[in-house]
């Protein structure tokens, strides 16, 4: 398998880094090579945040994703910046409850999912929107099953916050059915 490059982008506080960590840990528990790279620079300081995740069978070169295979897009600024950068044949997952734009390029598949609204309507706080979206990504890409997600969560969610594992799984399931 060549390197699968994911880019997750949104505002600080939406759980961009957490969602990236979950995705990276899914790779880890699936015995893949993984890298996780946050934006820690000027972008973060201005409130916009992104996170690159690479999953591969082989050694990963640069952990910085310029041209993603899969994009999770959680706000308008990242829609403008990153949707046109998605690789030909790639997929963009766009939170349509936050972004009203549509992409008219033909080479990529756009999934418009009202993830944040779905989360809130189902009793989650707004920052679970991105986890719902990750559920949708898992459904469309088939990278893993729910059990793997649970295993991934268990590797990095601290014992003190173990109750959050079930909450996250429920949000993932919401995305799997979206």
């Amino acid at each position: 398998m060549r390197v699968n490059e994911y880019l997750i982008a949104g505002f600080g506080g939406q759980g961009v880094l957490f969602a990236g960590k979950l995705l990276a840990n899914i790779g880890l528990v699936s015995d893949k090579q993984v890298t996780w790279m946050p934006s820690y620079g000027p972008a973060m300081r201005g409130g916009v945040c992104n996170c690159s995740v690479c999953i591969s069978d082989l050694l990963i070169g640069s952990p910085v994703v310029h041209l993603p295979d899969t994009l999770i897009c959680m706000n308008s600024p990242s829609f403008d910046k990153y949707v046109p950068a998605v690789k030909k044949g790639g997929a963009a997952f766009i939170d349509s409850s936050i972004i009203d734009q549509k992409f008219d390029g033909k080479d990529i598949t756009c999934h418009y999912v009202p993830a944040t609204k779905l989360a809130v309507d189902n009793g989650f706080s707004t920052n679970f929107g991105i986890i719902v979206m990750l559920g949708k990504v898992i459904k469309e890409s088939g990278i893993c099953d729910t059990e793997t997600v649970r295993k991934a969560l268990e590797t990095f969610v601290s014992a003190k916050k173990a109750s959050l594992i079930d909450t996250n799984i429920k949000a993932i399931e919401l995305g799997l059915n979206a």
């Binding site: 880890l28 090579q33 993984v34 890298t35 996780w36 790279m37 820690y40 952990p63």
Partner: peptide, 10 residues
């Protein structure tokens, strides 16, 4: 460098 310091890997 900043990349190696900030990135996560197994």
């Amino acid at each position: 460098d900043g990349l190696l310091g900030q990135m996560m890997e197994p």
